[in-house]
Write a protein that binds this DNA or RNA. Sequence first.
RNA 1: GCUCGAGUGGCGGAACUGGUAGACGCGCUGGAUUCAAAAUCCAGUUCCUUUGGAGUGUGGGUUCGAUUCCCACCUCGAGUACCA
Length: 1174
Amino acid sequence: MLAHGIPDVVICFYGSKMNYNFNEIEAKWQKYWAEHQTFKAENNSGKEKFYVLDMFPYPSGAGLHVGHPLGYIASDIYARYKRHKGFNVLHPQGYDSFGLPAEQYAIQTGQHPAITTEENIKTYRRQLDQLGFSFDWSREVRTSDPKYYKWTQWIFIQLFNSWYNKDTDKAEDIETLMSRFAAEGNTKVNAACDEDVSQFSADDWNSFSSKEQQEILLKYRLTYLADTEVNWVPALGTVLANDEIVNGVSERGGHPVVRKKMTQWSMRITAYAQRLLDGLNTIDWPQPLKDSQTNWIGRSEGASVNFKVLPLAPSEGGGITPRYITADSDLYPVLLERAKEMRKNPTAAEDKLWQALRRKNLDVRFRRQHPIYRFIVDFVCLEKGLIIEVDGKIHEYQLDNDAQRTLELEQKKGYTVIRFDNDEVLNDLERVVSEIEDVLNSLPLGEGWGGDFEIEVFTTRPDTIFGASFMTLAPEHELVPKITTPEQKAEVEAYIEATAKRSERDRMADVKTVSGTFTGAYAEHPFTKEPVPIWIGDYVLAGYGTGAVMSVPCGDQRDYDFAKHFGIPIPNIFEGIDISEEAFADKEKTIIANSDFLNGLSYKEAVKKVIAELEKIGQGKGKVNYRLRDAVFSRQRYWGEPFPVYYDEEGMPQMLDEKFLPLELPEVDKYLPTETGDPPLGNAKKWHWLQYGGDGKVVSKEEFENSSPEGRLGGPLELNTMPGWAGSSQYFNRYMDPHNDKEIFSREAIDYWQDVDLYIGGSEHATGHLLYSRFWQKFMFDKGLVPKAEFAKKLINQGMITGTSAFVYRMQQDTMLKDGIDVLKALDIKRKEYFLSKSLNDDYIGGVYNPILEKVKSQIIEDYKKVGVEAQWFEEVHPTSNPIHADVSFVNASDELDIEAFKNWRPEYKDAIFILENGELYDSNSLPLGEGRGGVFRVSREIEKMSKSKYNVVNPDDICEEYGADSLRMYEMFLGPLEQSKPWNTAGITGVHSFLKKLWRLYHSGPNGEFHVTDSPPSGEPEGAKTLHKTIKKVEDDIENFSFNTSVSTFMICVNELTAQKCHSREILEPLAILVSPYAPHIAEELWGKLGHGESIAFAPFPKFEEKYLVESTKEYPISFNGKMRFTMELPLDLSKEEIEAAVMANEKTQQQLQGRTPKKVIVVPGKIVNIVG
RNA sequence: GCUCGAGUGGCGGAACUGGUAGACGCGCUGGAUUCAAAAUCCAGUUCCUUUGGAGUGUGGGUUCGAUUCCCACCUCGAGUACCA
């Protein structure tokens, strides 16, 4: 008030006592609410409940800025509104008080993170209180409070003791799984589990050691320990979840992220993928948020197909001819046909030997009647390069031929050939077989041979399977080293090494480059039985699907590019589609051709058919694939919830008994990782669990080791801590019964409150907190702990309030003389020209270096040097200036900088020269600061996220001080729709502030501004009643629709009208105070008190809207001609269409518009509009 | 690239299921009050070639009538990123 140096006397003269003194009033009511605990919610009040929740804040050191309260104000308005509507409202608040910044601060200062956190919370609390929120602080929770995280740990134990039964589609107790294993093994168990579990019978299970059993169970538990490839951030010494990484760097701090394998706790969220997806249909959440969750879960329907890897023949030279086709390529088709015939009609001896060899269950596999080179041999074991020929009488006349053949096969192709005649086989089979075995044993396994492999692929387009001309594996695929042929080995290894070196970021940035290499191996097409070459390429991701694809170049652009690049054939399997330029991926327009039994079918029909066929031959099935990965739950940090886990003698994780919870964070000397690279908890002196019977405690390593092993339980405790989202995934339920130390919440509390009715928070939590919370809620639902499978019925995203940064530009050379600027300006133009010509014709013309441009460049650099500009700036930034964030508090609403304040801000700015914009000297104001004309210096503005480092933070404290919390609340609502992002701009706050003053004066119309409200007779103020009820209706609708900005303007209209009507009537002004109270609670309380009420306004019943005050007898009809409104006419509302038309046509303005023409048509919508078509 | 959202005065933004485009506020202009300022109040404020006409990113369509519905395009923002 004294900002402009006006003495107090003046204020007294105008009678400040009667004016709206918001500072005093707001402080008074905030104190009142706190003392009376006005907003304390009752568990089970008998009234209908309503639960309004805000996303609880992380108390950072920076405190609140004006962007933070937006959502809180909105939810507070709603909560207050619901109280007026007679609901028992739960509107709690707490803090997500575990967090990385507190830990980093602790690392720097050595102070315990809890102390920093506590200090920050104090600031937050003061700031939140100042804004007049109606939180029930008696229910405050903090995630870092052991009383709270006891239950976070408890839920972790519940998850550990559960598995997901896909048959019942819910989580079940691990005991049920163990009894099933003991009774029937795991073959019939349909569970969400690790992919590498092998099958076992009940007998197997019962014979497993306890450790083996535990290892298997770990693969089924909903939280499990596994070697996971994680996002490791060396700079932070911890791992991060996928949603904490943006563009390959950490979300906070932008540190580089590398992939690393670590043993980590994981949450089996994938078990819930489908239910998380389905649940979205049952909740009223914003569509964009649902979309991003849907996207994140990434369901795709298709088929999994198994391709058999063809065994390799012994080496016979390079090239990419199929290596199992051991026949000469041009003879092969003929030989194959022939071989097929011969397989159908074997001789008796051949058949007998074949059966015998099959019965033998040899390690290796024989093929019969197989084309080799230019012959068909009777039996061949490709792995060992052994050919067995059985000669019948018909061959006898060809003895020479046979000898020739053996020679060729042995000498040229390196096979071993043994021969038997028919009689030997038929009469002395045993000897023949044992002879074969001996030879087999004497032969080494062929190089490159790795066994009978299958490659499973996932595809959304199984209909295009006949177009698959190759397969591509991710370089990291486990089969790659096993199937690669010796010739390709070097190349493949080089490629794998090269891809591993490329960071995730490079790989993402460089999507265009096609790279890959051939493994030398082939797979067999499941239908055509043709060989399909197997390649590796980094466009196939190891982390998605099976890490392998069947490549259909005609139907997928990436496969197409790959095939084009490596000259792999691109067969066309689409009817009437030209694929000479690009792949064709439009499912809807697909008609399959050249595909055997799929010809002529549409996409849908073909998919159905091909899946049926795949199932018939046992090489595939329909499959749904999800992009969602299990969530890594370990963090290598100090400031998080400890796991209630110790490792027993066998190294198996064991849960602490519930009665020992909470397991509190240990004291450590420092918050950094240990020298051996263990997480910070490794620094704890006492971090071993020691338990005898029912007594357990945390002890030092020595104490544990010296304790008697007799009856002892325990071992080293887990060193990782839980991630940030652990504590926030159930806090909404804990609010229902926050001080219960017997259970996470009482049955009574959860049955009464059920779920959150309205949750307001930012959309940035879409794929993190909001997905994990839904997962935990579903788990809790399965366990019968909560009555609702979704925790929040309705969710609203508030937009972000962005800051408006102010920039000034500083001359690089502080010592530069004033006339240096003109020289620089000229040089800048030259420099720009240089880069322009460079971009046009490059400095290499036709591969020859262009010396002219280079000469220009060195000249410019030379000239720059003369005015003191360093050469390196030529390439980098604009050489004349660099932008500096100016603190927005130095800048007024017209972008004018307070030059003195700015120059005094930092000592180095004292004598610096600043110019406007990017070095451009475009008006008289751009003179160096403090020079000559003393004109205004305008900063340039840019919208950025509000951040301390950008000096664009506007503190709510300052606004409250100047205009009051009610003004701030109303103004933030008035800025625009809640969900929209908007830049903070103080310009309009005077509007709502003067509205509040007007509102005050409406109740203080006495001669000296005294309170003046009269008890007029009922319905004595028809105009006022009309205004009031119009307002009631609009405000009620607006709140229900979260359209808070429009209700603020409704209030303004209402107060303007009532002021004009000189309304003093209690009948009108009392309900108005209640209407305003959710938005501006302080002033409303004060007025309520002055109106003679002893109680808080908070529970006064919301005024009832009555239609009767708004009933009109006439309507101001808009009269339009061809849809354009030209004038209005007041007509009674009870006229018929015909009467309206007659009245309108009789009007002289109508005739004037028509200018004698007869209208073609007159459209009359009674109560709405009249449209004359001419 | 894909998915979603949005384009309305100098600015923030109104306009319910198609029915008077620009509510309300800021800013600006003029006026009243004042020695003066602050504060307050009153009037005006989409644009133009102003007895009229045009106008909600651009072009087309449906309709008596389109900011609203449909098609194509442009621009901006958010999310996602080789997802097979």
